[in-house]
Design a protein around this nucleic acid. Structure first.
Length: 431
DNA sequence: CTAGGGTTAG
């Protein structure tokens, strides 16, 4: 129904502040359930039009704007919004604070998120949840648990989301005991009945830690039907820990729920590849072909996004995590600049030199490329687009899809992981 | 109700 709202909005000759806020927050609300970022991008366009119309934004406007910036990883405009609040003496109320905490955390600036959190007045549950989640995606489980404890001292009641993000923090730090304890006591201690999401997090917690049998039991004991997230989590864990049998079980259930999602087949394919079962990799391809599942087209454009940033930074249990940090250090010691069509290794130095000032681009690009480098274990030529987000706003024909490049490996091609490819929508359609 | 937080993986 958003298009109807927009149609009506477009009929209004001189929208006032409340009208602008209504349409902007309608976009913000819809963008949470919208997988591509088109609605967030549209929010930026709308805000731009509002500026042109000389309507002065208030806190509610900025909450919608910051939310869109957080979704897109648009660092500059998000910090502009923050500065606008400070410059114009707008209140850093709990709504604005929560939006900013989430924004900064997703952009890799945990310190700024913390700063906003400390300065926010009359913090409530959502504010604390955003801060705990911020620590969690940065892999700082200690920080997450500290804020969780602080909630109690400050007399702020945890809710179901609080427990979910705390469990998430435990899962990504390998804190099985703490995570399980929280899950087991949530009903008695906090009066919150575990929902599907909590079970999903529990399965993930156990699976990442290599406790695959327990993860399987957790699924069996669920009082509700497991969803795709649960199975995908088990599949990912089976792959990392090399349990083919369980991986196949997970995939079977996953495909029943999501027969059209090519990424599921890629996960299984990667699992076979990781134990050198190249024949089976080929079989997965054939199954995909039989079922008419389209794989995403390859492209030489690689992004860079917040997702990879969170993935690597936050996930201490990931087998490549240490390797990547070592690579990064090695790269940091070298210096030189190269052209943009150089190999990944060379391009990295280019970014190193030029992007130092921009924390978001600097960190997340470095990590994404380092990950791609390790995942591919070769020097695939990859072209880096600077300021991807700007590109997407100015050229909406570009469309982000998960990075599934075929990379040369011993014994054949592997579906490489490690980024999001940007290619034109036409290309997506044509495959 | 013109406002904010959430699990998988890439």
């Amino acid at each position: 129904m958003l298009d109807v709202s927009r149609y009506l909005f477009d009929q209004i000759t001189e929208p006032d502040l409340a009208t602008w806020n209504t349409i902007l927050s309608a976009y913000a609300k819809s963008s949470t359930s919208n997988e591509d970022n088109s609605l967030s991008i549209e929010t930026l366009f709308l805000f731009n039009e509002m500026q042109v119309s000389l309507t002065r934004p208030n806190e509610k406007t900025l909450v919608a704007l910051i939310g869109a910036c957080a979704n897109l990883g648009v660092f500059n405009q998000g910090t502009w919004a923050h500065a606008y609040i400070l410059r114009n003496n707008l209140e850093l109320n709990r709504f604005v604070a929560t939006a900013l905490i989430e924004f900064y955390a997703k952009c890799g600036c945990l310190n700024l998120a913390k700063q906003v959190f400390e300065r926010a007045v009359r913090k409530d549950t959502l504010c604390y949840n955003a801060m705990i989640g911020g620590f969690a995606i940065h892999g700082q489980s200690r920080g997450a648990l500290d804020v969780f404890d602080r909630m109690r001292c400050d007399g702020v009641r945890p809710d179901d989301i609080t427990l979910l993000v705390v469990m998430y923090a435990c899962a990504h730090a390998g804190l099985v005991k703490d995570g399980r304890r929280i899950f087991n006591t949530m009903e008695d201690e906090y009066g919150i009945e575990p929902k599907l999401e909590h079970y999903g997090c529990l399965v993930d917690l156990l699976g990442r830690a290599g406790k695959l049998e327990e993860a399987k039991e957790a699924i069996r004991d669920m009082p509700m039907e497991p969803n795709a997230v649960v199975w995908r989590s088990l599949l990912g864990a089976s792959r990392v820990h090399g349990n083919l049998e369980l991986g196949q079980l997970a995939l079977k259930n996953l495909i029943e729920l999501e027969p059209e999602t090519s990424g599921n087949y890629v996960l299984l394919s990667n699992m076979y590849a990781s134990v050198n079962k190249w024949d089976d990799v080929e079989k997965v391809r054939e199954v995909m072909k039989d079922q008419g599942v389209n794989k995403a087209p390859g492209s030489s454009f690689v992004e860079i996004g917040g997702a990879i940033h969170e993935f690597i930074l936050g996930d201490k249990t990931h087998p490549h995590s240490k390797e990547i940090y070592m690579k990064l250090e090695e790269m940091n010691r070298k210096l030189h600049t190269y052209g943009h069509n150089a190999s990944i290794k060379e391009v990295l130095f280019d970014i190193e030199e030029e992007e130092k000032e921009d924390a978001l681009t600097y960190h997340s690009e470095k990590l994404a490329i380092a990950f791609a480098l390790i995942a591919s274990n070769s020097s695939v030529p990859i072209r880096i687009i600077k300021n991807l987000r700007d590109l997407m706003v100015s050229h909406p024909v570009f469309h982000p899809i998960p990075h599934q490049i075929d990379v040369p490996q011993q014994g054949g091609l592997e579906r490489g992981g490690g980024g999001v490819i940007i290619c034109s929508r036409d290309l997506v359609k044509s495959v």
